[in-house]
Design a protein around this nucleic acid. Structure first.
Lengths: 215, 215
DNA sequence: TTAATATCGATATATCTTTATCGATAAATG
DNA sequence: CATTTATCGATAAAGATATATCGATATTAA
């Protein structure tokens, strides 16, 4: 079985670096070291250096990396300069939260339209995005050449909506439902499972409690 | 540096198993094999068996594991039987989405109250949860013996809100903002960084596109 | 009752990921 | 101008995680 050539975790970290590097408080710092980033984010400095070696053009001893160059390099590496068209399915609270989220555009993600099956929402707009009937998903995705589908529907409708997206030629699904989606191999799925995250949170918590109150 | 004794990823997977095992379509299946779970979730069967060996009581050759027993074992292992009191800070769309989410209760998470700084929201309720002034965070957390804080405020207020939670004795923070929170060692933080997830999604997507269109 | 089969559980192996070490280098300092 | 210092980059080592192999076992079928 083939595995990922470059660790997915690294992409996660690069995004963290980017976020850190863009911080207001660093606006006047022309250079920054891997050690500093590592300390700030609680990571190992060699790890940071290795990540930056993959995504960036290299730094200078004693000085570190050019902050602006590093930002540009990471954004390039993460594909934030290419633009991807997306649609969102399910305009509930979570859907609205994602539609409101400024910052996706900076990552090259453009939400073109949203879909919902609620007649009261169909035809209206939210944050400047049109809300259309879910019946039109595949047609519209084809017409607009959409590559990403964001799923924020109830779990029970998730597979159906996903199938419509796939039918519409979408190549990646960002799944915010707990459903275990089936897609053809050519369509990637990234799951954002709240329960799974919560499981880890609770684990961290209990681990932590045990540490403090040994018995 | 000490690392996690039991892989965090495992907790993530256990939650997936749980979700799968509770599926309606399996309601009449008394037994289920690690192989079946692995195939369904796209994992290695030995990996699943290893996870289940840690969390469960073991299965029978040729048959598999008792589905109901497995569910109980995993829930026990994940600490879903213990109940944790939580508060949510920031009743925007995302906050509302989380307040609406049924299913946290099944995991032992009880959101006691919510906080916001918007005067129009303060004093109202959402989904049966009272919304109080953010100024009261630490006092109330102390009084109610809250152990988990859920952060769904704008990034700019994140550290401030987090400090109030820590002051209130919270032991774990579920951070839905992109802020890089500073907490004492005794307080765990679980970050849900959208940009970082998106970075991985885009990576999966482009990887996928390259596979299909080699040049 | 015997043979075939699916599965578990344990052990061993491979792979992936992170951390440690060390020489080289650019700036700062005396 | 030599020395010290912080950092990079490469290589090596360690550690963690996932996969493969194999004997044991319970069920099913001949």
């Amino acid at each position: 079985m083939r595995t990922t050539p470059v660790p997915l975790q690294m992409y996660h970290r690069l995004s963290l670096y980017l976020n850190y590097l863009k911080q207001d408080s660093l606006k006047d710092a022309p250079y920054i070291s891997a050690t500093a980033i590592a300390n700030e984010l609680g990571l190992n400095d060699v790890l940071v250096r290795k990540d930056l070696a993959v995504a960036g053009k290299g730094g200078k001893p004693k000085i570190g990396y050019s902050r602006s160059e590093l930002i540009a390099d990471i954004e390039m590496f993460l594909g934030y300069n290419d633009s991807f068209e997306a649609v969102l399915v399910g305009v509930g609270n979570l859907g609205k939260a994602l539609l409101s989220h400024k910052g996706f555009e900076d990552c090259g993600l453009k939400i073109a339209v949203a879909f919902d099956s609620n007649p009261e929402l169909i035809g209206t707009q939210y944050k400047g995005k049109k809300i259309l009937s879910s019946a039109k998903i595949s047609d519209l995705c084809k017409r607009l050449n959409i590559s990403i589908g964001i799923l924020t529907v109830p779990a029970a409708c998730a597979q159906e909506a996903c199938d419509a997206l796939v039918e519409g030629g979408v190549r990646a699904v960002w799944n915010f439902t707990p459903a275990n989606l089936k897609t053809p191999e050519s369509v990637s799925v990234k799951n954002e499972d709240m329960s799974a995250s919560l499981a880890i949170l609770i684990k961290l918590l209990t681990e932590n409690l045990e540490k403090r109150e040994p018995d």
